[in-house]
Design a protein around this nucleic acid. Structure first.
Lengths: 188, 188, 188, 188
DNA sequence: AATGAATGAGTATTCATTCAT
DNA sequence: GATGAATGAATACTCATTCAT
């Protein structure tokens, strides 16, 4: 018998991502996903119980991979961490447009289960930890960490697309500017 | 598109807003809209060319009404303007949940035409003007006004839902905090 | 607007009956029903909530019409009533092959709801009444009426197809024979 | 069709019987049969050419086993033979509910081939022989034997489920009643 | 203008069967 | 022979839109 193939599952997930970029979440059909993945329609259901399950899992994976990539604290000076986050986010947006579109369309959709939403919410924890460190060192304001995390996360999320549209030469300046805004906002 | 009965068009727009809150954009059907508006399915098409057109128009109107309400500069001290914006946004979120849900679901959907997206983008202009004034008075940093506007707009947008979930007694503090973050970020 | 048309519902029911005769209950598709009824697929769903509902309703109607036709007591001599029932059943089988096939295939299917099963079960009541009369007149055995009814009903049901296959000239003899068997079995 | 392992074929047939009782003929899937039989889906096709073939063969075997069990003439007095048949049928219904359900659902289905239908029809032969004997001894009416056989067979088939639902204590009486009805119907 | 019945293209999912291992 | 992954045709049902009244 043919062994259940992990690459096939990856093909299907990748195909889903690309389809959503091309036709949008609303226009996504399982047949198109299968075709793009190079498998039969039924095969998709061998690996994923339903369309909902496929999208939910893809969202979880994409979001987690993204979070792990962007939010990491190397323990160095705080100000630098801000720049690193902005840089990582910008790079991600520039290089992973499919993922960005997908996450944007999924965020408010009914496809995301509560479990996944909860798991994804944990992604801010590294940011929280970073900010806690800053507060402990009295470098940052004594504001509720949740508020600060939301501020930092959402600000970068909102600014990144602007930066990605800039010519590469101007991105260094943009990064420093955004990191500077965040820093000035939060610093004690 | 609308002829005789302007009320009927408003009924349909209002019904659409409520339906989206109840069943989501993905679950929205024209029949449900018509039922909720108290008209026949066909009647919807008398006032709106298509589902897309209905949603697009509703998005434009909602967004414009919202922008006009939240972003207005009374010419007073800049720092106070920041607080007023945050306050207005918070109040809007608290009192217009249907509109908030609708705008959230539409933002990344394919229903919004480019024309509407462009028109909506103009909504930041009052913010731009406000910031220009601040820059002229050398109270704010000499950063690209578009960037500053995006920062201010998106930050408040991201923070408002947090504030809306707070008990009313804590909202005053929240407003000041958020306005303070924005001010510190942008001030010269 | 077009008025909801009762003949259309009848067309669909009639088409279903004919399709089941041709392709069997298992091979029945809603598209084929619609095509045979001369309407669009969606139209079937205007008149019937689902395939199950369509089949359930058709079963109920068919069975009730059949029962009303076959089981009726004109109050005359009992022995004659037996012949009339056999005759009516035979005629029905000979003239309504679609209905016979349909009822046969539905009887053990999961399409029939409990409510319909209960309603259909009431169809034996005229037979029960007839037998009660016979017992009261001491023409029939003093056996549980339910048992007698089941005997009479099922025997005729089982024999009718045999009679229907006979050349018309022999049917008179067949009727009398079957009626005689039933009579001899139940008479006191 | 079956090769090495005769047990495996039996397992599959038995599993099919149980599945039909649990989910009905309409809900039967080959995967469920395989799972219940403890083999892989593909293995079912090693022993049976197709779903149709599996069901057809199972029907033939079940019906033949049933017929052999219920219809047997020990050469004793005719009246007693009637009681024995009713008794055997009742016992069978009480003890083999899977088989009864299966035969009931198959009877009107398109799964049964003409060949099988013909072979199954031969099952009445012992009944025919019994009745021929009775006619020869002039104990029974001089009616077409086929008609008599159909009458006896179908009557018992129709009555048995009623008896099976009775409390065991009342079954003796039921048997005698049914045997009596049949006897009175057919006796000269 | 208003109605709501009618349309029919579009789609997620199932499942008998095949086939590579 | 045995396995179970892979296939893809088949199908009930939905829903935006049209149109007869």
């Amino acid at each position: 018998m043919r062994r259940k193939d992990d690459t096939k599952a990856r093909d299907i997930l990748r195909a889903t991502l690309e389809e959503v970029r091309l036709v949008g979440l609303a226009g996504l059909s399982m047949e198109a996903v299968a075709r793009r993945a190079g498998v039969a329609t039924g095969t998709v259901y061998v690996y994923f119980k339903s369309k909902d399950a496929l999208l939910d899992q893809l969202y979880l994976e994409t979001k987690q991979k993204f979070t792990a990539l962007v939010f990491q604290d190397d323990g160095g000076p705080l100000r630098g961490a801000f720049t690193r986050i902005v840089t990582a986010y910008l790079d991600y947006v520039a290089e992973n447009s499919s993922e960005i579109v997908f996450m944007g369309q999924m965020a408010n959709s009914p496809y995301v289960t509560e479990a996944t939403r909860a798991a994804v919410a944990l992604g801010v924890r590294p940011v929280m930890a970073l900010l806690e460190r800053g507060k402990a060192e009295q470098l940052l304001k004594a504001i509720d960490t949740g508020w600060m995390a939301a501020f930092l996360y959402e600000t970068v999320k909102a600014m990144a697309p602007l930066g990605a549209r800039l010519p590469p030469g101007e991105r260094g300046h943009f990064r420093e500017t955004v990191a500077g805004l965040c820093w000035d906002a939060l610093k004690a």
